[in-house]
Computed example of a mutant assay.
Amino acid sequence: MKDKMDIEKLLQKVEQENLKNIVQSISIPRHGWYNYEALSSVAKFIEDRFREYCYIVEINEFSYNGKEYKNIIATLKGINSNKDWLLIGAHYDSAIGSPGADDNASGVAVMLEVARIIRESSLGENLKFVAFTLEEPQAFDLKFIIGSSQFVKKFKKLGHRYKALILESVGYYSDVKGSQKLPAFVKGPDKGDFLGVVGNGKSNALLELFEKAKTFVPSLNLITHKVSMNGWLSLETRFSDHAPFWDAGFQAVMLTDTAMFRNPYYHTSQDTPEKLNFSFMKDVTKALLAAVLIEQSY
């Protein structure tokens, strides 16, 4: 079991410059249909990073609208080595016309940095990192969260079980009063200076896990929020890759800066790296890493 000192030592390994470099490397328009080649190049970048960190990389490939797409899976011993997984995920495609720095290069960067550091611990055999594709609305039918829906359907049928931690836009920060809006039926601060961790009724244990994790990152304002009815009363709380896990009966939370409710550049050509707060992202990485280490220690 990792004690507090062990966890703190690993948190010190988080490198802000790594987060910045990853975001800058993949912040290019990479919509699944309009930027297919760019999306493929970003997929290769992610695969190469996982391999550099000594993970086994496997591909969950599927067809959509006549093209082949892939969810990228990284584990220590292969996807058939386990049935019960703690999954850390982030989508790597972007919205139409957007370089997607916050949405969602930021989430990919945090995921990769956690993968790098957790590899140095003695834990992680039941960890599965997944870079999802086709999360964003598609041009012809406006369907979204396609990659994660396909993934959950396939692996649930194979008997895999998940607790999922999904990163969705985690780089935009503002301490200006009035910078934070909120979805219907949700109460919270009016400053965009916090990380939201959103779960459903079945995900209490994961929300509690992040309450414990935030004690390791006192500089991060972390707010947990539980939705009822799997978020159907506040649809915006379902707009990412955690929703298919909720619908399949798995525990899942979304880590988010709240995207369109805070970031004025959301889904525009101006969602670029210089708009992000990398110190905030470093704290987000530490919080996620602490949560993983706490969960893995039991």
Rank of each mutant, 00 (worst) to 15 (best):
M1C: 09
I7S: 09
K13E: 15
E15C: 03
Q16L: 08
Q16V: 13
N21T: 05
V23H: 02
I26T: 09
R30N: 15
W33L: 08
N35T: 05
A38M: 00
A38K: 12
S40G: 12
V42S: 10
K44S: 12
I46M: 08
E52R: 07
C54L: 07
V57D: 13
E61A: 13
Y64W: 13
N65T: 08
N71M: 07
T75W: 00
N82F: 00
K83H: 05
D84E: 12
I88T: 09
G89F: 10
S94P: 11
S94H: 05
S94A: 13
A95H: 00
G97N: 06
P99D: 10
P99E: 07
P99L: 04
N104W: 02
S106Y: 05
L112K: 08
E113Y: 03
R116Y: 13
I117L: 00
I117Q: 03
I118V: 15
I118G: 03
R119T: 11
G124F: 00
G124Q: 00
E125I: 13
N126S: 13
N126M: 01
K128N: 11
T133A: 14
A139L: 12
D141L: 00
K157N: 14
G159T: 14
G159S: 14
R161S: 11
K163T: 14
L165G: 03
G178K: 04
Q180R: 01
P183G: 06
D190A: 11
L195A: 08
L195Q: 10
G196Q: 07
V197I: 05
G199V: 05
K202P: 06
N204M: 14
A205T: 15
L209Q: 05
P218A: 07
S219M: 05
V227Y: 02
S228F: 12
M229C: 02
L235I: 13
D241K: 01
A243Y: 10
L255F: 05
A259F: 08
P264F: 00
Y265W: 01
H267A: 08
T268W: 03
N277M: 03
M281N: 05
M281P: 13
D283Q: 11
L289H: 08
A290M: 08
E295Y: 12
S297T: 01
